[in-house]
Simulated scan of single mutants.
Amino acid sequence: MARLTLAFRSPGENFDKWQAAFAALMPDLSFVHWRDVSDPGAVDAVMCWLPPEGWLASFPKLRLVQSLGAGVDHVLKDGRYPAHVPLVRLVDPAMTRAMTDFVTFQVMRLHLGEPTYRRQQQVGLWEPHVPLRTVDRRVGILGLGELGTATAAALVRIGFDVAGWSRTPKDLPQVTCFSGEAGFAPFLARSDILVCLLPLTSATEGILSAATFAQMPQGAGLINVGRGGHLVEADLLAALDSGQLSEAVLDVFQTEPLPEAHPFWTHSRIVVTPHVAAVTNPATASLVVADNLRRLQAGEGWPDRVDLASGY
């Protein structure tokens, strides 16, 4: 098969780790840092995170764009994206497991009342609270793609009453599934803890808003591990301060890193984590990328190819 040239670009770098992984997996691959690309016409594929406007269009013979994450909004925000070039999401089982672990941990924290005890400790208050049984705690998963489906299954195994919402109908074992506009309100009404795992598209931007929070049970909790663009930040603060929501766990933000003066840092009912729910690991993700590159060489399709029209 013809030798491929793969260009790499990411603010997080890790170039050396990716280079070592590909050297073992695909010795014939020409893996090039974007700064070292001398001939754009020789680049067959690109692996990237947050590519700048027009950068992808600068490669005249580009045949594949590999996202460095499960989401692709960071790529599709480029108004000059070459629409004829396939875009592939990164679906790494290790990342899926990391996400399910993170969400499960945060759901359990909220379920058992850990944030309440932390606040009580700060004022020296000894006040026990009896938590609901897991079977009586209703968890809603907003988005039933690869990550949402795996997370729902993990929470079912623990014993939670799990529901999920998706744009189109889904059927998952032991998960109450809602879909479309008609299913959104009844889904929210039974979400004591809401987990957002949606892709960020024009249809989902700002979906975590005052209108959404108002349809949830009073005192519900929110976990956002989707994208910062899903959340209307001022609406969350208002919902927490009014008691409509009780707690929020935020791993993604409109601006990253989160600015030092942002009110999320010091709010007593918000937990901030720095976009770490499912971090891309070159050791495992390189196996997935290598398979996608071999598919390119063989002229095969990709199971995780993005529908550019829908944005996921």
Rank of each mutant, 00 (worst) to 15 (best):
A23G: 14
L172R: 03
C196E: 06
P257R: 04
L90V: 09
L76F: 08
R137W: 10
S10R: 15
S58Y: 10
T168A: 13
L125A: 09
V103C: 08
T96R: 12
R109K: 14
E127V: 00
F213T: 09
D73P: 11
M1N: 11
A298M: 02
M26I: 12
R35G: 04
V289R: 07
A42W: 12
E205S: 15
M95C: 00
M216N: 07
A214I: 00
G71R: 14
F160P: 02
N281Y: 08
D251R: 02
A261S: 06
A150N: 04
G219F: 02
P274K: 11
D307N: 15
I223M: 08
W265V: 04
P52E: 15
Y81E: 06
L250E: 08
W18A: 00
A285E: 02
L200H: 04
K61W: 01
E256T: 14
P11W: 12
F15W: 01
E256C: 13
M26C: 10
R295H: 12
S10I: 03
L231R: 13
A94D: 12
V272I: 07
A152R: 11
T255W: 05
I207P: 07
P93C: 06
A70L: 03
L6F: 09
V252N: 14
G301D: 15
N14A: 12
L68F: 03
T255S: 13
S246Q: 14
G124E: 05
N224C: 03
A45M: 14
I207Y: 03
G79Y: 08
H84M: 01
W302N: 09
C177N: 11
T151S: 11
V107I: 05
A298N: 11
L250H: 10
G148F: 03
I141C: 04
V156S: 05
M108N: 06
T151E: 08
L87I: 10
I223Q: 06
N281F: 04
Q121S: 04
N14R: 15
R227F: 12
D241W: 07
V156C: 01
P199Y: 11
A150D: 06
G243L: 09
A2P: 13
L25G: 03
Q297D: 15
L147S: 02
C177V: 05
P257H: 01
F59D: 09
D92K: 03
S30V: 14
T266V: 14
P115I: 08
G299I: 13
G69I: 01
F178E: 02
N14V: 04
G226Q: 11
D92A: 03
A163K: 00
E53M: 11
W34Q: 15
E181G: 02
D161G: 02
D92G: 05
A290C: 07
